[in-house]
Nucleic acid binder design. Structure first.
Length: 271
DNA sequence: AATATTCTCAACCGCTCACGC
DNA sequence: CGCGTGAGCGGTTGAGAATAT
């Protein structure tokens, strides 16, 4: 019954020893990453392959930064989190040397509490001194509202959505499945390998803005972040098309707009 | 100083997706 | 097309550290 265990029973658990780290590092240096189950076996590590992978990616891999998250990085995390939600891997990709696990931990232990206390603040939270015991115990860890998980859509599907004026009305189901992928498009083949992760709620934002008021204050804040990114969008559809450059990658575009704003804020516009 | 409580973060777990057969 | 496997992701756990009483 149940799921087959991914690892043998006789494995080490818990913290990695220095010897284990060295063994793993040496093995990966010689044989490269991948095939983690075999790494665990061939390197003689009594560890689950997943555990080896995680240890390597989060701690042993060259270039990984540890601790001391800077003010700039913190601002970046906050803004990206507003944009992407709990998409830690995506956020981590924007922060070289940082891992999704570290960002997730940092968010859960520091930022979520700060933002709980100062929900509208972003850069200013960096200067707030977190004093232990002062803050109320936070029961709800994540500040993002409950929302359907972002779904993976193809670029073709995305463009079709936008052609139809975004996700207004009942056009888009929040429970859409891959089966509603646009079919028969002549461009489909060229996009077939171009999949993006995008929060469908953000696609909803544009068309939503003239039909609904935000249901919650947080919801409202989330919408503002995106909407204000579009400097001259006079209508929801303008906003949509503003986010569609010739070589469009909606997620990248959203991120780039946000990053430019951040760079401007930080005085790094020349970068 | 001893004990209780709270916090941090490394690691684990379950799930989904992609891919090869 | 279905199945098995590997990789990746995000949520959760728990041991140890830090702090409060």
């Amino acid at each position: 019954m149940g799921r087959r265990p991914c690892c043998p029973k006789e494995i080490n658990k818990g913290a990695w020893s220095r010897e284990e780290d060295e063994t793993l590092s040496k093995y990966v240096a010689i044989h490269g990453e991948g095939k983690w189950q075999k790494v665990a076996q061939n390197a003689g590590l009594k560890r689950c392959g997943k555990s080896c992978r995680q240890r390597w990616l989060n701690y042993l891999k060259p270039g990984i930064k540890r601790g001391d998250i800077s003010v700039d990085e913190e601002d970046m995390i906050i803004r990206l989190h507003r944009l992407l939600g709990n998409r830690w891997a995506l956020i981590a990709k924007r922060l070289p040397g940082r891992t999704d696990n570290e960002i997730k931990n940092y968010w859960n232990t520091n930022l979520s509490k700060k933002l709980q206390k100062h929900p509208t603040s972003s850069s200013s939270v960096s200067s707030l001194q977190h004093k232990r015991g002062e803050e109320e115990k936070i029961k709800q860890v994540h500040v993002t509202p409950d929302a359907p998980r972002p779904r993976r859509v193809s670029a073709v599907e995305y463009s079709k959505i936008m052609e139809n004026g975004g996700c207004g009305g009942n056009r888009c189901s929040t429970t859409a499945s891959p089966s509603n992928k646009v079919e028969g498009s002549s461009d489909e083949a060229s996009f077939s390998d171009f999949l993006i992760d995008i929060d469908q709620n953000q696609l909803l934002i544009a068309d939503d803005s003239n039909s609904k008021v935000p249901q919650t204050e947080e919801d409202h804040n989330n919408k503002q972040v995106v909407l204000t990114n579009s400097p001259s969008s006079s209508s929801p559809s303008d906003h949509c098309h503003h986010l569609l450059p010739e070589k469009f990658d909606p997620l990248e575009t959203l991120l780039d707009v946000e990053l430019k704003r951040m760079a401007s804020f930080l005085g790094l516009e020349n970068d």
